[in-house]
Amino acid sequence: MSHVLSPVRGSPPPRRRGDPMRTTVRGLGELLLTAGLVVLLFVFYEAYVTDWSSAEKQRQATAKLDDTWSNGRGVVDRPVKGAGIAKMYVPAFGPDFVFTVLEGTDPDVLAVGPGHYQGTASPGQVGNFGVAGHRVGKGSPFNSLDLLASCDAIVIETADHWYVYRVLPLRGESDGWAAGKGAQPQCRGVGPLPGHYADVVGKTIVLPNQVDVIAPVPGQPRRTPVSRLITLTTCNPQFSARERLIVHGVLVTSSPKADGQRPVELTAGA
């Protein structure tokens, strides 16, 4: 007879019902394990599940914008909050990177796509076209904003125009720009800005309350703008809201839309 069949040595001790200490400790342990799983599930939700619903919302917003444009109703002075106003292409993020930019920066707007700070300049205007976008989840349009280099193109398509902005020289690149990176062909029209814009560089990291990065003259809220800028904002570092990552670009070309014509930045992938 094998010893494992012995009722005393092989089997677990009989369940002792009503041991309050044991029940409490086990219940606490199970609660903690459950809480850990819920937190993991939340990370999964934030980073992936919100992408799925945002992709559908973005698709609908794009379809609506296309419809508006094809009906010739695209040019409005004051778009309502949540309405699509433009499309944004960043060739450096791949030929398929296109997002419909919506009016406003409320959370429900940003869940659809990048949002235009209300009150900042419209695309192509003198001033500062400010756009916020998510970095994690919700389609994460600005996930790779930190990878943009100076002179990378940010192409904005409106109802009737193409606007090509390019990222300004980064901090430390301004000295010797004309003979250095500024000599490269994609940097035509890009350079350190003069006057009150001297401190505006292509990429900065600021605190969340530094709202003057989207001022008409970034950092100088009371100055009258002379340049046509674009400013993209997102959270920094990833998965945190401690800081904001800011990218400034300057308009280099603009052209009225003609049938089927796209800017060379999009066709050549520059």
């Binding site: 940003l110 970095r135 919700k138 989207i214 959270c235």
Partner: peptide, 8 residues
């Protein structure tokens, strides 16, 4: 406060 992307 994980996903605020706007300045201001």
């Amino acid at each position: 406060p994980f996903n605020d992307v706007t300045a201001g």
